[in-house]
Design a protein around this nucleic acid. Structure first.
Lengths: 146, 146
DNA sequence: GGCATATAGTTGTTTGTGCAACTATCCAAA
DNA sequence: TTTGGATAGTTGCACAAACAACTATATGCC
């Protein structure tokens, strides 16, 4: 059995993503404690818009690994919070380009600091070379399945 | 900066759990293709009941890393599907003990085979020692944050 | 016994996800 | 130029998660 390192007791946490769930919950609590009224999912959309704004919803789907209805509703909620604006593309009227508001631009520094802090807490006892291997394995898993 | 190996471009996938999301989606598709009418979340509850049935909802909360309302509703849905039964404890009437039906017992072998298959597909190109390190890191992350 | 407190489970609300079905727009080929 | 297929986005539905507020039962202490 090639690469079947998963005995029954170990299989569960890999599939359910216990570790990433724990990281996301911790970060959400930090957002709440800081009075930041956004969800992790909304933050993950903003994260990509901070790298490049004015992209389409479809590009956000690809970047965040979500389907179109999920992005439609996340953008709906981000618009309600006055964090993004939909702007119809002039060259292709099917497309919405998504832009950040000034309010959203202000969130970047604080939320990224909280995210760094969360990962440092998660990995405080883990040597750097093991973290690198872990990141590498997770990337390969994603590439193998996407 | 101790253990801060996360540059911006890498931070995202760790927090959002891209890899475990991809694994869960692949497994869900296998369930659907096999005509198994259950969700990954329902399966994760059955998974623990196959190891030991007759445990309380609270014990299922601890085992599955979910809160009480989540388990209430998962057990609701599993009961509707005739896969589990709530049985009131005789010694403590606050407690529901959860038992598998015959129908659920039949699902174990087939679903576990599909889960093994999914993990093999995910890890087919990854050497065993790297998988071990990855599992270890994820466990430490979970322990650091729980 | 009676009361305070803790524990087990449920319900309501908001948010997010996956799938299917739908509309609108674009584009390319007959 | 029309028509058929592809693409972008939206909506409806079922399921799930987090949080708060709630009921019922148990337990410990006076």
């Amino acid at each position: 059995m090639p690469n079947n390192q998963f005995k029954k007791g170990e299989l569960y946490s890999f599939i359910t993503g216990k570790a990433s769930t724990a990281i996301a919950r911790r970060l959400q609590k930090k957002f709440n404690a800081a009075g930041l009224n956004i969800t992790i999912e909304q933050w993950s959309v903003l994260y990509h818009l901070w790298k490049q704004e004015g992209i389409s919803q479809q590009e956000l789907c690809n970047a965040t690994f979500r389907d179109k209805p999920s992005i439609t509703r996340l953008v709906d909620n981000l618009e309600k919070l006055n964090l993004v604006k939909r702007v119809a593309s002039e060259s292709d009227r099917r497309i919405n380009l998504i832009y950040l508001t000034k309010q959203a631009q202000k969130l970047q520094e604080e939320t990224m600091a909280l995210a760094d802090e969360t990962l440092n807490e998660a990995l405080i006892t883990v040597p750097a070379d093991k973290v690198d291997i872990c990141k590498e394995v997770l990337q390969v898993v994603y590439d193998n399945l996407k």
